[in-house]
């Protein structure tokens, strides 16, 4: 078993939590359902959604810029870490992820083993 990180990019739900809380709630429930199924298999290790704001800090001088820093489609909107037998297995686990129905992208990256 190895760890894999799912990075979610894009995939705007098209509902605003402020003006349509019920619609947004329904959308979040689709995420919950997907993750619950992962959790049931015991292979879901955690993760969080991320705000679209933040700071980008560069260089020794720690030069700061406000986010968002890239085009909406490319912003990392959240991450999840899972346990999978192989990259194919991990790809299969992303099936049913709600982001696919909203034109979003899941980037699946194996966690690197670092040996000294």
């Amino acid at each position: 078993m190895s760890k894999y990180m799912f990075l979610f990019r894009g995939g705007e739900p098209g509902v605003d939590p402020m003006s349509d809380p019920a619609g947004f709630g329904a959308y979040m429930m689709t995420w919950k359902t997907w993750m619950e199924n992962l959790a049931k298999s015991g292979k879901y290790l955690g993760g969080d959604p991320l705000e679209a704001t933040g700071r980008t800090v560069t260089g020794k001088a720690m030069k700061m810029t406000d986010g968002p820093f890239v085009e909406g489609k490319e912003i990392v909107g959240g991450y999840v870490i899972v346990e999978a037998a192989s990259i194919e297995d991990a790809v299969k686990m992303s099936e049913g992820c709600p982001i696919y129905t909203h034109d979003g992208v899941v980037e699946i990256r194996p966690v690197q083993h670092v040996d000294f």
Partner: peptide
């Protein structure tokens, strides 16, 4: 895992 993640905490 569901209660520790902001994805699912509130919904759960």
């Amino acid at each position: 895992a569901l209660l520790r993640s902001e994805w699912t905490l509130s919904g759960t």
